[in-house]
Design a protein around this nucleic acid. Structure first.
Lengths: 342, 342
DNA sequence: TTGTAAGCGTTATCAT
DNA sequence: ATGATAACGCTTACAA
């Protein structure tokens, strides 16, 4: 590997001069500059980033602490972070807690969780990262550790008491989607929620209720049924809602919406014409089922970008970002909510 | 941040002694050892990995060069690599080419592709990685660059002329699945392939033909139709196959199988009873559709682990791994191929 | 305009 | 058993 030392020797100058040129500093004769640049090119010089970081005391690198890389939201968020970092010449290091792989849908108990975070954080800190972005595999509170004070820390797709967090705006998305259903002619909207103790169930439900209220459509609690995010609950509860005479169903995630779709197909209900159906999350299935499912796309990439922006601001000691940033979702209209003509 | 220097001062010993203790070297009085360990703990010492790498001239880190992190196969492969690295105390750095994001399904032209690789490789080499694993977003030949000679290099999920590559065994999977279809009572198997110029179309087709031959079932070329990996081609071609009187359909990917499923549902064909259907890839949809789709799971995690094993072997200068490693897939039987009783 | 030298945190050699 | 010191590649005062 070529070093500034080898360049210096080859070009018959001092390493200081080489360093200056390579770092774009002024005060070097143009002729020398060119010479050094040529030699560097010729020797295929690549700066040793470890040496640079050592010298600087900190790496131009942020750590990404992901709860589980293989959960659907995570790669896209990382992609957003990467683009945000690229823009300012920062790199990133990934640490994967593998929470889903290890514990499935249940979170580990807080002590175990904290131990895993601490371990990963140790590695990251050993690599002198300038800050850390924590990516949740779903929305929840992250255990608050004393270690977070050691360096800039931002949460993405999850929250933590005292840390700047970037999440998506459930409630508004739900409000907008309900409004659309109404505009499309629905007046009896059934809703299938997640478990009652889920924050998402709450905020999505609230969005619907607010939209109904604003449009002077009375909210009928009997048309809200509690599911469990799984497809089969969608199937089961759809039957009840259909019996209750709804003309639209809002399933709070795509999985359950798929169950609804099947139930309708079994009962000969034409989704999109007789019944409007909308899901949430914009998973791959939405494009593959028939009719294609209208749904809400999560701003994953933007969450990543925003989190990157936050951490970078924190690192450069700019003003700290807001404690909670809510990014808007996007309603995606497909065939399951085609507007009735007339 | 605590350093060995601060530990040394605190413990009233030299930095050399501290280093020895921290690295588990012998020749230190047990008493001193304990003292140093205590102080290190107390100061919350974390080794500076940059300094270590600088000193060592190389980092205990491998680079992962992914064509696109957001493509479905990639996170799982990375997960496998991560576990492989963890076992031996190696870390990894991720570089994302974003090929799919930038160019969609079409690969960029080789010059552009090479330029992107080179750029990412520069960064990785600047960080003194000990080797690189390249992850393809689909199976194809990777452009061969001179730079690959600078350090150990392994391909995962794709191949490159002279580089050790780890891929999955299409053909055997296809053979096995066909055999299963036969055992389940099928004797007229229709196949929907990908584009003719795809390597996967070829090898999967070959697997089917070999299985038919071995079981003395004549292969009828008229029952093999060419699709384009997209769902709609599955729908369209299923109609033809059904008309031709097949009692099983092998769609060479899950997407197309979903089209087949819809076509069957439209025509009132009971998949799983009247017609066996099998896909390939084991995408999320397989669990969500009804009947659930039998399919072939790709050994993604294993590809990652194996690639990690290869690169680590290369780094430690053990014997070089085989140029091509083919890992077995797993047939996953679900409802779409339930065996006919009797 | 150019060069010398110190120092970032480690490890390792060689004295003591 | 312990310590002084050089070196890894780089940046940066400061000197020439």
């Amino acid at each position: 590997m070529a070093t500034i030392r080898s360049i210096a020797k080859q070009a018959n100058v001092s390493i200081a001069t080489v360093s200056k040129v390579l770092n774009g500093k002024t005060g070097v004769k143009e002729e020398t500059r060119q010479l050094i640049l040529n030699v560097a090119q010729e020797l295929n010089y690549r700066p040793n980033l470890n040496a640079r970081s050592l010298k600087a005391g900190i790496a131009r690198t942020i750590g990404i602490l992901a709860e589980d890389l293989t959960v659907f939201n995570t790669p896209e968020i990382i992609d957003g972070i990467a683009v945000g970092c690229d823009r300012v010449g920062y790199h990133y290091i990934l640490a994967n807690l593998r929470l889903f792989k290890r514990f499935g849908h249940r979170m580990p108990d807080p002590a175990t969780h904290a131990a895993l975070i601490r371990e990963a954080l140790d590695t990251l800190l050993s690599k002198q990262v300038a800050g850390v972005i924590y990516i949740g595999s779903h929305s929840h509170q992250v255990p608050l550790l004393a270690e977070y004070n050691e360096l800039p820390f931002v949460c993405a797709y999850c929250t933590c008491d005292t840390l700047p967090s970037v999440v998506y705006d459930d409630e508004t998305a739900s409000y907008d989607l309900t409004e659309r259903l109404l505009q499309n002619g629905a007046d009896r909207i059934g809703m299938i929620t997640g478990p009652v103790d889920s924050l998402h169930s709450m905020s999505r439900g609230r969005g619907l209720m607010r939209a109904l209220y604003d449009h002077r459509v009375p909210y009928n609690p009997a048309l809200t049924l509690t599911g469990d995010w799984e497809r089969d609950s969608g199937y089961r509860l759809a039957a009840q809602l259909l019996d209750a005479g709804v003309n639209a169903i809002y399933a709070q995630n795509d999985n359950m919406a798929m169950g609804v779709l099947d139930c309708c197909s079994a009962r000969g209900v034409a989704v999109g014409r007789e019944l409007q159906l909308v899901g949430f999350d914009n998973r791959d299935i939405c494009q593959v089922c028939r009719p294609r499912l209208s749904t809400v796309a999560l701003p994953l990439f933007e969450i990543g970008q925003t989190a990157a922006g936050h951490i970078l601001k924190l690192i450069s000691e700019g003003e700290p970002p807001a404690l909670l940033t809510k990014l808007p979702c996007t309603f995606i209209e497909r065939e399951s909510t085609i507007r009735k003509e007339g």
